[in-house]
Design a protein around this nucleic acid. Structure first.
Length: 570
RNA sequence: GCCCCCGUGGCGCAAUUAGGACAGCGCACCUGGCUUCGAACCAGGGGGUUGCAGGUUCGAGUCCUGCCGGGGGUACCA
């Protein structure tokens, strides 16, 4: 397998070698060379392609002006084919310029690698689990879950590209009170549809049409069969059936978003077996002194926490034993399941910011279990506000009033949802405008990127019609136009973007990159005629067709990393 | 009260390996560009003391403190 090089890191290595050489030659005093050499892409053309501010930091150590250090260092940086210029620049930067001839040669290299372009080995095969969505299976997915889904899936894709062995997992909360609540809700609707008398007890119900729909389905399939059944028995059956029913819908909706899970882990499993994982964990925590019994409940107590947290509710408050363990108790089991039993190197959780208060508890639980808390990564995203134009749409599952993911997919399709949900960092609240998402205009950025891809496809079709052989690899040395080179520079940056996005767990970088790449293709297209009708330009046309094909592959790669379609026509 | 996130041109957001050289992009607004490859595109223009006040640093949108404003959390709910 071929991996892509990250230019930034290559250049950092050059600087390191330069520092060593300069020391050896006596041009610089001997000092400990920093482990991390900073190198950043330049923001201004005059500064070349990459720059390093190392010398600024060394000024203090060496008691010399940064620019003097830079000037002493520059001549000792080894010459390599891909760098044409190394320059010390005030106040003390070292600037690197990529060689344009070498740059042009990268076009066929990228084309050759195809969608493997951008693959890295920084993950070194480390096993990472990304657990996301994990919405309670008590109703259809909402738009809030869509952000979770999009973020988690893109995160997984980016990590896989960076060389991690990634598994996508959905955690099914199918144990305890909410499962029963769903069963009870369906049961009550079922009875009322058949005009049968309700049971003597009354509990909380989920409102919402989907409950009625499921009850109707049972009526159609089974008639009055459950009317005579013992209510407790019926509720149990309705609950199990309902959860499966909802999950099937969830899976289908997510599939339409092009999201597929490797595993579906059921909370219920933690409470089965003899002894169950739940019993094992409880015994373990108790033995290690993390359990406090008080007020009839069982509490988790840890020095990192300001206050104890309930693991098992008291029988006085919750009569049904199955409903007594809290979600924190399940989280404890799940930690063990992920990081000990299945032994992932790390577990990434994608959570809504409304759960941020749980972070310290889960971290403390990991510690209590002897798991390095650094292996547990909680990624929080701020919530989604939904609006139609300037009118806010309030959502809540308990009120039964919400916009489902399915409705949204029906309205706009998966691509705008994926792109728009990914454009912002997880740290900011997201305003999702239903009107805008539907709008097929240039206010809607998703089309800009996809259009670049279809535009290339259109050019290639045009070329084929004119009899151009699509497989001819033109001479890259003919690619000398600034628009051509800028496009190649941007394609060359994909590995860095994947590196950054993976390391910082920030897949939103992909959207910005996709727009930039698309923009540079559009500029190239505008400035450089690709398929020329003048026979004298045949060689150049071949070279540009190659460049266009390379750009098409990279665009497709980025779109696919974001889980989007790379269409041939629009 | 305490905890978390955010505050960047009219609006929506970026800003890179967690501090680097002149803060970018889209929308909106104004102007120009299709008789050869897809104008869902391109080019140009106006618009900013990065919420406020301090601090650390050679250097701060980025780090620290305080304040102001918005959102979320603070259950024997999940």
């Amino acid at each position: 397998m071929t991996y892509t090089k990250i230019m930034r890191r290559e250049i950092a290595d050059l600087v390191r070698e330069g520092l060593q050489a300069a020391q050896a030659a006596g041009a610089l005093d001997v000092f400990d060379i920093p482990k991390e050499i900073p190198v950043t892409p330049s923001r201004h053309e005059a500064h070349g392609d990459y720059g390093s501010p190392v010398c600024m930091g060394l000024a203090r150590v060496l008691h010399r002006a940064p620019i003097q250090i830079a000037e002493a260092l520059a001549p000792h940086i080894p010459a390599v084919e891909y760098i044409s210029g190394i320059e010390a620049a005030p106040p003390g930067f070292i600037n690197f310029t990529l060689d344009e001839g070498w740059l042009a040669q990268q076009a066929p290299v990228i084309l050759e690698m195809g969608e493997a372009w951008g693959n890295l080995d920084v993950g070194a095969g480390e096993r990472v689990q990304v657990e996301f969505v994990s919405a309670n299976p008590t109703g259809p997915l909402t738009i809030g879950s869509a952000r979770n889904a999009v973020l988690g899936d893109a995160m997984a894709a980016v990590l896989a590209a960076a060389g991690y062995a990634v598994e996508r997992e959905y955690y099914v909360n199918d144990h305890g009170s909410k499962a029963r609540k769903l069963g009870y809700s369906i049961y009550m609707r079922y009875l009322s549809l058949l005009d049968a008398p309700p049971p003597s007890f009354e509990e909380e119900k989920y409102p919402g049409e989907y409950v009625t729909a499921m009850a109707q389905e049972l009526v159609d399939a089974s008639g009055r069969r459950f009317v005579e059944m013992d209510p407790e028995q019926a509720i149990r059956e309705f609950s199990a059936w309902g959860i499966e029913r909802v999950l099937a819908g969830v899976e289908k909706d997510l599939a339409r978003m092009r999201i597929h899970f490797d595993t579906w882990r059921h909370e219920r499993d933690f409470y089965q077996g003899d002894p169950s994982l739940y019993e094992q964990m409880m015994a373990r925590l108790r033995e290690d002194g993390y359990i406090v019994d008080k007020e009839g409940a069982v509490w988790f107590s840890h020095p990192d926490l300001d206050q104890d947290a309930v693991l098992v509710r008291s029988a006085e408050v919750i009569p049904n034993p199955e409903d007594r363990p809290t979600y924190l108790m399940s989280d404890v089991c799940y930690l063990w399941d992920k990081l000990v039993v299945r032994d992932f190197d790390s577990a990434i959780y994608i959570w809504g910011a409304d759960h941020h208060g749980d972070v310290p508890r889960v971290k403390a639980a990991a510690k209590a279990l002897g798991i390095d808390p650094a292996r547990v990564e909680l990624i929080l995203y701020q919530l989604v506000t939904l609006r139609r134009g300037d009118q806010e749409v309030r959502m809540s599952k308990s009120s039964g009033e919400f916009v489902t993911l399915r409705e949204l997919i029906d309205e706009v399709g998966p691509d705008p949802i994926r792109f728009m949900m990914l454009t912002r960092t997880a740290d900011v609240t997201l305003d999702f405008d239903l009107d805008l998402a539907v709008e097929e205009s240039d206010r809607n950025p998703v089309y800009y990127v996809q259009y670049a891809h279809t535009r290339i496809a259109g050019v290639l079709r045009h070329a084929a019609e004119r009899g151009w052989d699509p497989d001819v690899i033109g001479d890259p040395a003919l690619l000398t136009h600034p628009s051509e080179l800028d496009l190649i520079r941007k394609m060359l940056a994909l590995p860095e973007i994947i590196d950054v996005a993976a390391e910082h767990r920030a897949p939103h970088h992909l959207t910005a990159y996709a727009r930039e790449l698309a923009a540079l293709f559009h500029i190239f297209y505008h400035n450089c005629r690709i398929v020329s009708s003048d026979p004298a330009d045949a060689d150049l046309s071949h070279a540009r067709l190659m460049l266009a094909r390379a750009a098409k592959t990279v665009l497709a790669r980025v779109l696919h990393l974001m889980g989007m379609d790379a269409p041939e026509t629009m």
